[in-house]
């Protein structure tokens, strides 16, 4: 980081936060503080929804994942547009007309108090588990690349987020999200332009795409029916749709974005904008990663992208040297084969292209094998078990090859992506804590001003909780990621109960409550006893909740029968 980089980073952060606070003046009632007085235009909600979903680790990991595994991860998002259409037709009008602060408040209107309590408890557990990781993960990556103490990064990022979220409520969160998303777009475009400009002069963008394709990095669509393959067209369309329905329809950190809309139409537009923009955006991020891969065909990358891990195995000379020698030879062979392929392509020589392509793929396999041996050496020398340097690839490229100012912009993107996610999380956790717990069960008839200050205090509490959780992250090690994984096991249950609420008129509170417990048991059984990809857990949980809910309603004469809200 040079002086210009620090200037760009500090300047963009100060501008974003100042603008957010300026736009949030007058957040002096609970309704304005938590729902922006229902005045938000569609474009602000749309960018806020997008910024909340795009966490720092998504941005850092996605480019690295494309470098290592190609672009097939984009299939994960194929179900998102379908989910947005379904939610626009169902959840948006129902939540708006129910005039609720939280999605779980609607569960009491439709079912009963115990179903609302269970729904809000599941959300608090699930989000509470993951909020620390949103702060911890980027701090660790920045610590590895720049040597910045992760505690300092955590404290600075956390303090900034708490400050503007506590002062300005959801208006500050939304308007800072808008600016943060614009910084992310700018950073992405700059990254793409820079990586193409940094390719050797005799390698065109078309050549680069052919080389990435030859190495399997442009395999975007897989029509395989393998249940254990995480990313296929089918797991994306079906599993991805259920995951998006759960996340955007039942998770208060997203629902609260579109509850602030000035009308049902504006809220629908915000979701449908995401339906149109999200898949191309992810494609673009992955494509940047694929181009970084091509860049490193002609510029030798380090054996491992995590500097500390590389130093650790370099210290073990006798075991490291043969791996490094094989790696260097494979790199040279691959570079030569790539140059030969470009020559043959220009001469329009199919035989030459086929020969050089075979050598290129062989060298790529040898290179991958040497990198795998390097990762194994890290583990054997007492380093991180399950070592993986995917998260460090893109930032390593940025810091080595981008000119002054651009590095600061990319780090601003990392900060923006992290802060936009954390602010939405602590804002929604505070909302559910006050509306669904405190105002419902503890203090039922206090003044609006009392609940406004309670909301501010709850925001401070959840912000400090996230910072503490992230601060202990290093001691927890890989446990913190396991905890985040556990958080994702609750989504299917929440989706199931909202499907019952919206579509199954004869199911009452008892059916919904028992269905939720059965759905959660089914998800935990799938997690503990099968190898099914996690994308299918939501489908399993949702189906079990609906089936058990209907069964209880069918066999129980005492089921409360309230009509489902009409659209």
């Amino acid at each position: 980081m040079r002086a210009l980089d620090w200037l760009v980073l500090a300047g963009s952060l100060v501008f974003i936060i100042a603008y957010g606070l300026y736009r949030s003046r007058g957040s002096n009632t609970v309704n304005r503080y938590l729902l922006a007085g229902k005045t938000m235009p569609w474009y602000a909600m749309a960018l806020s929804i997008m910024a909340t979903q795009a966490s720092a680790i998504t941005f850092i990991s996605t480019t690295g994942q494309s470098y290592v595994d190609g672009m097939r991860f984009v299939q994960f998002y194929f179900g998102l547009p379908l989910a947005m259409v379904i939610l626009s037709a169902t959840a948006v009008p129902i939540f708006h007309r129910a005039n609720v602060y939280t999605a779980y408040e609607y569960l009491e209107q439709r079912f009963d108090a115990k179903t609302r309590a269970l729904g809000s408890l599941i959300f608090l557990l699930q989000r509470g588990f993951s909020v620390g990781l949103s702060l911890y993960a980027p701090a660790i990556v920045l610590a590895v690349i720049f040597g910045w103490p992760d505690q300092w990064t955590t404290v600075i990022m956390g303090t900034l987020v708490i400050t503007y979220t506590v002062i300005g409520g959801i208006q500050a969160v939304t308007w800072t999200d808008v600016q943060q998303m614009l910084v992310i777009f700018l950073g992405l475009i700059v990254s793409m332009i820079m990586v193409v400009l940094l390719l050797p002069a005799d390698v065109s963008l078309l050549d680069a795409m052919h080389l990435a394709g030859a190495a399997g990095r442009l395999n975007v669509v897989s029509t395989s029916f393998d249940w254990n393959d995480r990313y296929t067209l089918w797991s994306g369309l079906i599993g991805g749709m259920f995951l998006a329905l759960s996340y955007f329809g039942c998770d208060q950190s997203q629902v609260q974005r579109y509850l602030t809309g000035r009308s049902i139409a504006q809220s629908k537009l915000s979701l449908l904008f995401n339906a149109m923009a999200k898949v191309p955006m992810q494609f673009f991020i992955l494509f940047v990663g694929a181009m970084v891969f091509v860049f490193y065909i002609f510029e030798k990358p380090p054996l491992l992208f995590a500097p500390a891990a590389l130093s650790r195995i370099e210290a073990d000379g006798p075991r490291h040297r043969p791996v490094e020698t094989r790696y260097s030879a494979a790199f040279e062979n691959r570079r030569q084969a790539a140059s030969d392929w470009i020559d043959a392509h220009r001469r329009d020589s199919p035989d030459g292209q086929a020969r050089s392509l075979a050598r290129f793929r062989q060298a790529q396999q040898e290179l991958d094998a040497a990198r795998a041996d390097g990762a194994r050496l890290v583990q054997e020398s007492g380093g991180e078990q399950g070592f993986n340097d995917t998260n460090y690839i893109f930032l390593s490229f940025v810091t080595r090859y981008l000119p002054a100012g651009f590095v600061g912009l990319i780090i601003a993107v990392i900060f923006a992506a992290a802060m936009s996610t954390i602010s939405a999380e602590i804002n929604s956790l505070a909302t559910v804590s006050i509306i669904d717990v405190y105002r419902r069960h503890v203090r039922k008839d206090a003044s609006d001003r009392h609940y406004l200050w309670a909301s501010r205090l709850a925001t401070v509490f959840w912000g400090l909780y996230a910072m503490s959780f992230a601060g202990y992250g290093r001691k927890l090690g890989s446990l913190i990621e396991a905890v985040n994984m556990l958080g994702s096991l609750f989504y299917g249950t929440l989706l199931g109960v909202f499907v019952l609420a919206f579509f199954m008129r004869r199911v009452g509170g008892n059916g919904a409550f028992v269905g939720m417990l059965a759905g959660e048991a089914a998800i935990l059984a799938a997690f503990l006893f099968t190898g099914i990809s996690f994308l299918w857990y939501n489908v399993i949980g949702c189906v079990v909740v609906v089936a058990v809910g209907l069964a209880v309603a069918f066999f129980s004469d005492g089921a409360k029968r309230r009509p489902a809200a009409s659209q």
Binding site: F78, L82, M84, H210, G213, A214, N219, V279, L357
Partner: peptide
């Protein structure tokens, strides 16, 4: 909103087909 919803689903279908053609064009 029916037409808007169908347009979004049609758009997704077009995107998937374009991605497939993109993959085939460059996986020489």
């Amino acid at each position: 909103w029916r037409r808007v919803y169908f347009a979004v689903i049609f758009y997704l279908g077009v995107l998937i087909v374009l991605f497939y053609l993109f993959m085939k064009a460059f996986s020489s």
